[in-house]
Simulated scan of single mutants.
Amino acid sequence: MNARQAYAAEQRRRRIRLSFLLLITFLLSTLFLFAGRYPKAGFTFPSNLADPMVNTILLQIRLPRILLALLAGAMLSASGFTFQMLFSNPLVEPGFLGVSQGSAFGAALMIVLGTASSVLVQVSATVFGLGALLASYLLAQRFRFGGALLRLVLSGIAVSAIFSSALGVVKLVAEPTKDLQDITFWMMGGLWNASWNQILSILSVVAACLVILFCYRWKLNLLSLQEKTSFSVGLNPKRDRVLLLVVATIGTTLTISITGLIGWVGLITPHLGRKLFGSDSSYSFPGSMILGSLFLLVCDTIGRTLLPTEIPIGLLTSFLGAIIFIVILSLKHQEGKA
């Protein structure tokens, strides 16, 4: 087999893996639609579909929740993959430049101010998340130490610390029996408030962000190289990096403004995507998106069915993500020894 045939065979294998992941995600989504605690813990059988309450639960509660899990998982994973490639750092996730901390502060601030509107909480979280990105970028222009990416990393650390401190102050003055509990639950993440209206409120923008990132996926390999190398092949590294960072941040902030803080999805799924599809982002990027959707779907289903009370999804993604991360690092260590 010559090099061209070997390359074509590898491409076919990657397409088959992508198709298999899509099929698994569709089948599990359909299966999990019937998993819950009504009319009793377990699965809803066809004999129960005559009950109007069962149909309402399936179509108005579980279905939008599953779709939100798929959408949020894809967006967080796509953002994490983009950040990791742009910074050439496998330990980066969407909150790397203070985005998550800024969004958390914005949501907590609106909760403490006493608003009853979830839309205002969503808008505030989005605005402050974008503000954190802008602050990191402007602050990086003032630094005189290291290269452009290193300055952005350092400014992100500083901005994250500032917003984390501000969030601590907001939690300190929050009313303990209500506002503080709302802030705590938001920061643990959850899809219990999922509805068709919430999905529609972010669908167009998040879908546009995913399309833009998907169309730029082939450039991510080049942008992960040194800036001179990227420029030599006809790219504008500074413009493209800023564009992708802004798009990834907008999608992330809109997502977590509804779901709350959900960690590890944007960190662990790009690792799994590259492990299954290799370093070529043409395949590993969509593979990571599907894995992100699948990971969040499984975590949410476990969280709402395992115990009588719901487990916040952020706790499950952190727990399972950390275990997967340990396994990946252990396997890489063993491969290195071999």
Rank of each mutant, 00 (worst) to 15 (best):
I258H: 08
T30L: 15
P270N: 10
R4P: 02
A3C: 13
F295V: 04
M110L: 15
W264K: 00
R304D: 03
A132R: 03
Q122I: 12
L76A: 09
F45A: 07
S204P: 14
P52Q: 10
G131K: 00
A78E: 02
A6P: 07
A9L: 15
S29H: 06
F295H: 02
Y38A: 04
I57R: 09
T177P: 00
A207P: 08
E10I: 00
G146E: 07
G147P: 11
L244K: 09
F20G: 00
I202V: 15
E335W: 07
T317N: 06
L172H: 10
Q5F: 03
I250Q: 01
P90R: 09
F214G: 14
V127K: 09
N236T: 11
S124E: 01
V153W: 11
S88M: 02
T305N: 15
T269R: 03
D240N: 09
I57Q: 11
S232Q: 10
A9N: 13
A41M: 13
S204D: 13
Q101A: 15
S293D: 08
N197K: 14
L31F: 15
I268S: 01
G287T: 07
G260K: 05
L130P: 01
R239H: 14
G36C: 13
I24A: 15
L33C: 11
W196I: 12
A207Q: 04
I323N: 08
S204K: 12
W218A: 09
L306Y: 03
L220I: 03
K337F: 13
E175L: 09
G321Q: 10
L222S: 14
R142E: 14
W186A: 02
